[in-house]
């Protein structure tokens, strides 16, 4: 097995207007089988993917927002959300659903997966990757 690489999935689109958000999530779930060091970035309209209270009954599209909460089971535990992107859209962390994972190295304690970072920190995270996949 080759050495573990750092993969960042960059999400910059709102969930239902285009297929990007769902495609990204599916690639993340499939890619999780390769056991790499995976992080997800949510910035610009991508932060809308994580909002609470989505209900797609009226638009005939599957509501995939609950699936983000399964990411912990797939050992995807780092969801970076950009503060400035939230601010620009009048959102706070409270407007996002809680996503948690159980930390294997800490007696399976439940911990939040969402980490709010500044734009400068997001730039550092991006610059620290081996592979960046954009959606």
């Amino acid at each position: 097995m080759s050495e573990i690489k750092k993969f960042l999935y960059v999400n910059r689109k709102a969930p239902y207007g285009t297929i990007y958000a769902l495609e990204s999530l599916e690639v993340v779930l499939i890619g999780a089988a390769f056991e790499q060091d995976v992080s997800l970035a949510f910035l610009d309209d991508g932060v809308f993917q994580l909002t609470k209270g989505q209900n797609t009954d009226g638009i005939g599209i599957k509501n995939f927002s609950p699936t983000y909460r399964a990411l912990g089971d797939y050992e995807v535990t780092k969801l970076y959300v950009e503060q400035e992107s939230l601010d620009e859209r009048g959102l706070t962390l409270d407007d996002l659903q809680a996503v948690v994972y159980e930390d294997e190295d800490d007696d399976w304690e439940e911990k939040p997966s969402i980490r709010v970072v500044s734009r400068a920190e997001m730039a550092d995270i991006m610059a620290d990757q081996d592979v960046v996949l954009s959606f």
Binding site: L29, A32, A33, K62, N63, F64, P66, T67, R69, A70, D73, Y74
Partner: peptide, 15 residues
Amino acid sequence: EEYQIAPAVRVLIKS
């Protein structure tokens, strides 16, 4: 029902 996906085998077994 909870997550809107059918889990991969290894995830199913772990869960």
